[in-house]
Nucleic acid binder design. Structure first.
Lengths: 331, 331
DNA sequence: TCGCCCAATGGTATCGATTACACGTCGGAC
DNA sequence: GTCCGACGTGTAATCGATACCATTGGGCGA
C-alpha cells in the first residue's frame, strides 16, 4: 500500500488540499505549512499517484508509439527522437511493436485509446484500407511517420522521397553510369513510387542515353537478392539503386557471393542510412533520412495538435547524399 | 469528453454496476440486459477508461523498460522480446531510453514509480554505486537484464558470459592460433571480467603455449580501433577476441584500413550476435546471446514476482558460437 | 398458500489527487 | 471601532470504474 496524499497531510498536520497546493507549487501556502509538508513528503518518501492525477486532470502524459518492427534498424533512431522529445515535455512513451502484423497495429490503436494516451504516433510502413478507415476517424491526436493517408486528413512526417530518388540517380549518373537498375520495395507503399519517380526525373534531366530497369523487391534483405538474377543477365558496369539500405545490403551480399566487385564493377546505392550502412565493406553510399528528427518532429506535432493548432498536410524533411565506398565511376 | 460507463448505462437503461458486470464478463447478468448493454457499447463506441480502472484496481498493466541506448543494436531485440511477452499478458511497455546517462536512468526509475507501473526492467550496461543503492531498495517488482547487483538481492537475467568467453577462445585455439588479443570493455562491468575469465580458462585448458594480451576498449566501435595500435606491433597471424560485436566491427574496420586481411591474416571474433554481424564482409564470427529470450524472460520474471513468488539469484541463459567468415586457420 | 432462496439489479463507497468554494483571521484604512 | 480585502486553510465534489451490500421479484418445495 503506497503512501497517499492523506498520509502526508496527517503527518504534516494539514489537509490534503494544502499538500496538493504544495505539490502544484501554488503560492497560497504559508512558509510554515510548506516546510512541514515538504518534510513529511521526504520522510515518507511520498510519490503522488500519476494514476489518480490522470483521472482528475484527464491527461495521462503518455504517448503511444506504434512501430512496424523495432528490430528493423530503421526504427530505433525514430524511437530515440520521439523519446527525447517526449521526455523534454514530461511525457512517457508507450511502445507498441506491431511485429509486421497489420491486425496487431489496429489492436494497439484500440488499446492505446483505452489507456487514454494524449496522442499516438504511427511509424508503420504499409497502411491497408482498414488502417485508413480506422486512422482517419481516430478520436485522439495522431501523427503518421513515414507514411501518409490520401487526402492528407492526418498530419504526417515524411522524408523527401522523390528528391532522394533524384539525388541517388544523379549521383550514379555523374559517375558515368548509363545502365541503372532500380530494386524497388513493395508497390503498395507510397514512398516506393516516389523514389522511383525521382530516379526517372533525374534520368530525364540528364538528357543522355540512359537505360533504367525496375525489379520489385520486398524492402528487406531478401529483396536485394534480386541482384543475383540481374547479375546473371547484365555485364558490368551498371549501377543498382536500391529502395532502401537493407535491400542494398542484400544486393551487395549477392554480388559478393558471385565474385562481382563493388564498386569496381557494379555500384550500389541505398536509402535510409541505417547504422549498418557505415559498416559494410565497402561502406554503403546512401541517401540519409534524418530519422531522429522525424521522431522528434512527430512528438512536437502531437503537442501542437493538443494545443488546438490545426496541423494539416505533410511535413517533409530533407534528405542528403552520403557517399561511401559502394559507388564508383563506371569503367 | 469521452464516453463514460454512465453514458452507456443510461443508453442501455441499466445502472453502471450492470454495465461494469458486462465488462467483466460476469455471469450475473440477464441475457436481455447483456444485449442492451453490448448494443449501447457498440453504438457509442465506448471504451472503458484504463485510468479509472487502474485507480480502482491498483494495477496499471504497464511495465517500465529502461534501456541504456535503444540505438545500440544490442537492445532492440531485448525490447522486442519484452514487448511480446508483455503483450501476451495484456500489459504495455513504457520505454525509457536513458541515452547512456546514469542520472537519467535514476530519474526514470522515479518517474516510473509515480506512474505506478506494475514492474520495472532495467537493461543497462554499467551500474554505478548510486544505482545499487537505489535499486536494492526499489519498492516495486524489479528485474535486471545483462547486469547484476552484488549479493543477488535483485533478480537478474544474464547470459553465460564466462562460458561465452571460453567458447570464443576455444574456437580460435582450435584454429591453431597461439597469440590471442582480447579487446575488453570498460572494467566496471561485470560481464567484461567474466568474459575475460572465460578466455583465460580456455587457454589454461588448452595446455599449449599460448600468449594472451589484454587491451581495454570502451565496448563501442571506437574501442575496436585499438586494433590499429595492436596491428602496428604484432605480425600476423593472431586472433582478436573482442568484448562484443561493436568492438569487433571497429577492429575489422581498422584492419581493413591497414590492408590486413580478415581472416587470412588475422581472425576476429565478437560477442552478442547483433543483426549487423551477419552483414559485414566477411561475416562476423561471434558468440550469440539470445537477446529476445532475455527480454521475454525478464517480463515473465516480473509476472512471477507479482504473483508473490520469491525469485532470487540470477537466471543465466546459454550462449552459442556462430561461425561466419571472420575467423580462419592460423597460417 | 406460505416462506425461502437465488438470480438480477441498483445504490453507493472507494481508489488518490485536484480544485471550487467557503470560512476564519488578521491588518489596514476610514 | 467598523468594514473590507487578502491570505491561508479546510470541506467536499469530482474524475470513471469496481465491488460490496441491499433490494426486488420469481420460482419452487413443503
Amino acid at each position: 500500500m503506497p503512501i497517499t496524499i492523506t498520509d502526508v497531510a496527517a503527518r504534516a498536520g494539514v489537509s490534503s488540499a494544502t499538500v496538493s497546493r504544495v505539490l502544484q507549487g501554488s503560492p497560497r501556502v504559508s512558509r510554515a505549512a510548506l516546510e512541514r509538508v515538504q518534510a513529511a513528503i521526504a520522510e515518507l518518501e511520498y510519490r503522488p499517484s500519476g494514476v489518480a492525477r490522470s483521472l482528475r486532470s484527464q491527461q495521462t502524459g503518455t504517448l503511444g508509439l506504434i512501430v512496424t518492427n523495432i528490430t528493423n534498424p530503421f526504427y530505433p533512431e525514430i524511437v530515440r527522437g520521439a523519446e527525447d522529445a517526449a521526455q523534454r515535455m514530461g511525457a512517457s512513451i508507450i511502445l507498441c511493436n506491431a511485429a509486421e502484423d497489420p491486425e496487431r497495429e489496429i489492436a494497439y490503436l484500440d488499446l492505446l485509446l483505452e489507456r487514454r494516451v494524449d496522442g499516438v504516433i504511427v511509424a508503420a510502413g504499409g497502411l491497408t484500407q482498414r488502417h485508413e478507415d480506422f486512422l482517419s476517424a481516430f478520436p485522439s491526436p495522431l501523427v503518421l511517420v513515414n507514411a501518409a493517408l490520401p487526402g492528407g486528413q492526418v498530419p504526417a512526417v515524411l522524408s523527401d522521397d522523390e528528391g532522394g530518388g533524384r539525388a541517388a540517380a544523379a549521383h550514379v549518373l555523374e559517375l558515368g553510369h548509363t545502365r541503372l537498375v532500380h530494386i524497388s520495395g513493395p508497390a503498395v507503399r507510397e514512398a516506393v513510387s516516389l523514389r522511383l519517380d525521382g530516379v526517372r526525373a533525374a534520368i530525364a534531366a540528364a538528357d543522355a542515353d540512359v537505360t533504367l530497369e525496375v525489379v520489385e523487391g520486398d524492402g528487406y534483405l531478401a529483396g536485394g537478392l534480386a541482384a543475383r538474377e540481374v547479375a546473371g543477365r547484365l555485364r558490368p558496369p551498371y549501377a543498382i539503386i536500391a529502395h532502401n539500405d537493407l535491400t542494398a545490403v542484400g544486393a551487395m551480399h549477392a554480388l559478393f557471393d558471385l565474385g562481382i566487385r563493388v564498386p569496381d564493377e557494379v555500384s550500389v546505392i541505398g536509402f535510409d542510412d541505417i547504422a549498418l550502412a557505415a559498416f559494410t565493406n565497402p561502406g554503403l553510399t546512401t541517401i540519409a533520412q534524418d530519422k531522429y528528427a522525424m521522431g522528434h518532429l512527430a512528438v512536437e506535432t502531437i503537442a501542437r495538435l493538443r494545443s488546438g493548432e490545426a496541423v494539416k498536410g505533410d511535413q517533409v524533411l530533407p534528405v542528403r547524399l552520403i557517399v561511401r565506398g559502394s559507388t564508383g565511376p563506371a569503367h
